[in-house]
Design a protein around this nucleic acid. Structure first.
Lengths: 326, 326
DNA sequence: GGAAGGCCTGTTAGCGATACCATGAGCTGG
DNA sequence: CCAGCTCATGGTATCGCTAACAGGCCTTCC
C-alpha cells in the first residue's frame, strides 16, 4: 500500500480512502491512485483490514450433508446471493447432527472471524445449538423449527404437505398413507404435521406414518411393505428419492401407478419428471430459501431488525403418478 | 491475550507458544496458561495471526454448479479432509464457466488470504484459467485435462468408459452408441475417448456420439431419437441422470431394457439402483477424489513435491439394465 | 570451581490496514 | 479583510499476534 501511495504521490491514508470511500477523494487524485493500484497490481490485505475493522466480508455456513439435494441447493443459493453482495462463504460441515458438533462448527467459523453464520441443519439438535450461540454473533437458521432465538428462512413444509394430501384426497382416495423422513428432522415432522392436519380436518382415518431415511433404498424397503396392503391406494412420500424406491416396489408387486396407487413426492428434484411414472411432487425453491437466509443475515449484521421469519411457498407439481395425463 | 498472560502470570509470548508450540513450554506453565485460556474463554484472533504468519488455515474451492451430484460430492470430500486437518473451506462458485470468471473466483479467494486453491471445474476453460494463475499460490485441479501446470486429482474417466464399453460388447452387441456430456467438459471428452478407443481396438463401427447436457431432460429427448433406430441395442450414457431419461424414452417407445437395448450410465448416484430397471453404471468415488485433491494441496502448501497426478479408479457396477439378474 | 551450553521465558518490533484527529487551502459572508 | 466554515489530505496510534533475538538460571563436565 505504501508503494501505491508513493507512486500516486499521496499518503497511504488516501489510498485507503479511495478503496473504501471514493466519494471523499477528489476525482483527480482518485484516478491517480487507481492507476497506481492497477500498475502495481495492488490487492488489499484482508487480514489487516479485519484486524482493525472487525469486519471480514466472510460468512459461515454450518451444514450437515451437502451431497443431499436440498442442502446442496440451499448452499448454492446462499453462495450466489453472497457473491452478488461481495461476501465470501466458508463452510463447516458436520460429521454428525448434535448440539456438540453444531457448536463446534460455529466455533470453527467464528475463529475465522466470520461476520455471521447460517445454520443449514433442519434437525432438532440445531435448535439446541442455536440456543447456546455465542452472544454478538449474527446468525440465521434455515428450515428451522419453532421458537428459535434467531431469524429463520424456510419452505413452508406444513403447507406443502397439506397441498399434497388434499390433492390425493381430491382424486377420491379414502385416506392417504405417509412415508416420512427420519424423526428429529424438522422437514420431516413439518410434513407429517401438514399431512395429518388435512386428514383430521376431513375426518379421514390417519394411518401410522412409516419412517424412512430419505434414501431410495429405504423407500424401496418400506414400499414393499405398503405394496402388500390392498388398502393402500394413495401414498404421500416425504421426498422424491424415497418416492422413487416406492414406485419401484409397487411396480415389482404388480401394483400400477397411478391406476391402483397414487404417489406424491416432495422436493421436485430435476429428475422427478423422468421417474416412471413421472412423479407428482411438491416443489421447494431451495435457491430462494438460500437467498432469503442471506438477506436475513445481512439485516442482522447491519443491525436492521427486519422480519424474523421468511417463508417460501412450495408448489404442487402434478404429473402422471397421480393421474393419467396425455 | 494480554489478560490471559496476566492471569497465568506469564508474558503474552508464552501464551502464544502454548498455543502454537506447546512442547517448548514447561508442562507446569503450560497447564497454568491453558487454565487461564479456559477461564477467560480466550480465542485467538486469526486475522492477527494471518497478518504476521501469512498462513490462514483456509483453503479456497472454485466450483461451478454445486447442485450437481459430482461437484457436490467432491466438495464434500474436500471439506471432510480439510476438517480433519483443521482447515476451513471457502467456496467461490462461478456464474459461468470461462477463463474470466475462474480468474475472478480465484482472485476473490486470494483476497481472503487463502493458503491454496482447489479448482473443481472440469471444463476446458479451467485449464486456461489455471495457466494464468498468480505465481506463488498453491493450486490443485480436480478432474482436469492434460498439460495443466498444477497437480490434478481425478477419476480415470477414460478407463471407466472403456470398462463400460467392453462390458456392453461382452454381452454380444455389435457396437455401442454413446450419449455424451457437453463438449468442453473434460469428463465428457474423457468418456468419449475411452468409449471410442475400445470400439476401435475391437474393430467395431464407431457411431457419431450424441451430445446431451447432463440433465435427464436431454437424455429423454435424445433417447427418443435413439429409440427409433432398430440398430441401437447398446447405449453408453455419460451420466446416470441422462441415462434415466434414456430409459424412459426407450420404455415409451416399447423397447425393453435390457432385452432389446442395454444401457450403462456413469456416476452411480445413490438412486441408480432404484431406476427402472436398476442401472448398470460406473461408480466414481467423488469423496476420494476430494480427499486426494486436499492432500495434493497440502503437499504444495508445505512445499513437498509429491506426485502431480492422483488417479482414482472407477468401478463398473453391473445391474439389470445390462442383463437380467435374479 | 568456573566456563560452556541448554532450557525456558521475556522484550521488542512489525505484519498492513483503518480510526481519529489535525492541518492547511480555498471559499463565503458580514 | 478576516472570522469561520468546508473539503481534501496527512500523521499517528492501534488492532492482536508472532519472529527473532536476548537473557537468566540451572546443569554438565573438565
Amino acid at each position: 500500500m505504501e508503494d501505491v501511495a508513493e507512486l500516486a504521490g499521496v499518503s497511504a491514508m488516501t489510498v485507503s480512502r479511495v478503496l473504501n470511500a471514493p466519494e471523499k477523494v477528489r476525482p483527480e487524485t482518485r484516478a491517480r491512485v487507481l492507476a497506481a493500484v492497477r500498475e502495481l497490481d495492488y490487492r488489499p490485505n484482508s487480514a489487516a483490514r479485519v484486524l482493525v475493522t472487525g469486519r471480514s466480508g466472510v460468512l459461515g455456513v454450518v451444514c450437515f450433508d451437502t451431497t443431499l439435494y436440498g442442502p446442496a441447493s440451499t448452499l448454492f443459493g446462499i453462495e450466489q446471493a453472497a457473491r452478488d453482495s461481495d461476501y465470501l462463504v466458508s463452510i463447516a460441515s458436520l460429521p454428525a447432527l448434535n448440539r456438540t458438533w453444531i457448536t463446534r462448527g460455529i466455533d470453527r467459523l467464528r475463529s475465522q472471524s466470520v461476520d455471521g453464520v447460517i445454520v443449514v441443519a433442519p434437525h432438532e439438535s440445531a435448535a439446541e445449538g442455536l440456543r447456546h450461540l455465542p452472544p454478538g454473533l449474527p446468525a440465521v437458521d434455515v428450515g428451522g423449527g419453532t421458537d428459535l432465538p434467531v431469524p429463520v428462512a424456510a419452505v413452508d413444509q406444513y403447507a406443502g404437505a397439506a397441498r399434497a394430501t388434499r390433492h390425493l384426497l381430491s382424486l377420491g382416495h379414502r385416506t392417504v398413507w405417509h412415508l416420512s423422513g427420519p424423526p428429529n428432522w424438522i422437514d420431516a415432522s413439518g410434513r407429517v404435521a401438514g399431512w395429518r392436519s388435512v386428514l383430521e380436518a376431513e375426518g379421514r382415518e390417519v394411518p401410522e406414518p412409516l419412517v424412512g431415511d430419505w434414501t431410495a433404498h429405504s423407500g424401496y424397503e418400506i414400499g414393499k411393505r405398503l405394496a402388500r396392503e390392498p388398502d393402500v391406494t394413495a401414498i404421500f412420500v416425504a421426498n422424491d428419492h424415497m418416492a422413487m424406491g416406492v414406485l419401484r416396489a409397487l411396480r415389482e408387486a404388480g401394483r400400477r401407478v397411478p391406476e391402483d396407487v397414487s404417489v406424491v413426492g416432495f422436493d421436485d428434484v430435476p429428475e422427478a419428471a423422468y421417474f416412471w411414472p413421472p412423479l407428482t411432487t411438491v416443489r421447494q425453491n431451495f435457491g430462494e430459501v438460500g437467498r432469503q437466509a442471506f438477506q436475513l443475515l445481512l439485516d442482522r449484521i447491519f443491525g436492521v431488525d427486519g422480519e424474523a421469519r421468511r417463508m417460501v411457498e412450495p408448489e404442487l407439481v402434478v404429473r402422471e403418478s397421480t393421474g393419467v395425463s396425455p
